[in-house]
Design a protein around this nucleic acid. Structure first.
Lengths: 221, 221
DNA sequence: TTGCTCGTCTTACGTCGTAAGGCTACCTTA
DNA sequence: TAAGGTAGCCTTACGACGTAAGACGAGCAA
């Protein structure tokens, strides 16, 4: 890395570092290292680490915008739903490439240009669908982070495949959490194709998304 | 603070420290200080800071469980919706008391007993409503963190009240984000009761919640 | 009395973000 | 062309963090 430092190069390098080593690896020193510079040199291009993280949000969101800008789908009237659905699932792909990034988005109320631009496009699609501005406002809040393609999961029976041990552990909790356990055992039984693990994140995301989009569709004038 | 240290006292103190100074104030040294001890003494009762944070999740969720356990509402058949709604809005109150806590929940896949117990109760209510186990599973994923009463907002026109300056700033962005700006100006105009700020978080939360609950209700057999 | 073990404290290490200021290469301007 | 300034990068150092290693004292068991 011999080229001169740039705010833009710094931010792109930050994404690269996090891609390789996770968010924990994103250190000012490590960031400088991959740029062939010293930590303090970064501060000429960036006020502090917070600004690096803000910049990361911007880089990721720009990546999303580049993708969704290429989508050319009708959005007038009833077509709004498919258009919004595609937009959101496209954005989601970016977060699948940068799994660490959701944590950064969660930690700041991002009002940078890229995020505003993404939301602007969202408002346009909903407007095409015939929603009022007030409805659109509610819709954006109802979608929350889902509009960018990710959700906060609190319920996760465990990553990894459904093993015999985990089923045994489940049976051990049947007394303490009877309803939960009987649900999970049925889930595991219904889907013996257990290599995928307990839950199919993508399917669940789409289920929740469709639930909301269908609900919104019913509100249209 | 002269009483002997306890894992439980440590965890409760952690919640207190975060309540007073935010999550950033939750330091092993600060935590020891409010307990009248030294930092390293904590490690006898707690493996590391991660375990403190896990414990904080447990304390907060227990606080939630204490509240929702007192709810005595019918949940059979169509009554499921009101029961779940009340449960979730009750949980939400706890996070309004501990605003910093959402960040802790987000940062870990919490499978501690308290969270399992909360989810167990949720499954029971949905079961009472007549949902299949498979539907309940989808429902829990669709609700995500909303089942505990909080959401990840990415869209926030700005905290604080709607001032003349912020409206002027809005007009300045009309060229870059036309749809977004025209929506926001209409929102601000429709609701001149601007002291509340741009968005009523509680109203928006309930809107999104009802959207999902209504959608689920239509799936019932 | 002796010795163990439980709970706490002292000291210290490595890592983090970053403040303060030094060094050089280049540009401006007389 | 010489003088001075500034842009860009670096060195050094500080305080805060999590925590490893082990010392210390009190209480109990033998």
């Amino acid at each position: 890395m011999k080229r001169p430092l740039t705010r833009d190069r710094v931010l792109r390098a930050a994404v690269r570092v996090a891609d390789e080593g996770g968010l924990g690896a994103l250190t000012m020193r490590r960031l400088a290292e991959v740029l062939g510079a010293e930590a303090m040199s970064l501060y000429y291009h960036v006020r502090n680490k917070e600004e690096v993280l803000d910049g990361v949000v911007e880089v990721i969101t720009s990546e999303i915008n580049d993708l969704v800008d290429k989508i050319d789908l009708p959005s007038e009237g009833a077509a709004w739903k498919a258009a919004v659905r595609t937009r959101i699932l496209t954005a989601r792909e970016v977060f699948l490439r940068h799994p660490w990034a959701t944590g950064v988005f969660e930690s700041r109320t991002s009002s940078n240009p890229a995020v505003l631009r993404y939301n602007d496009g969202m408002v346009r699609l909903l407007r095409d669908g015939g929603f009022t501005h007030d409805q659109i406002h509610h819709a954006l809040h109802a979608l929350g982070s889902r509009s960018l393609g990710f959700t906060q999961e609190l319920f996760d029976p465990g990553t990894g495949p459904v093993t015999e041990e985990s089923l045994a552990a489940l049976r051990g909790m049947a007394d303490a959490f009877p309803h939960l356990v009987s649900m999970l055992t049925e889930i595991a039984h219904d889907d013996p194709d257990s290599t995928l693990g307990w839950c199919d994140d993508q399917k669940e995301f789409e289920f929740g998304l469709d639930l909301i989009l269908d609900g919104l569709d019913r509100l249209r004038a």
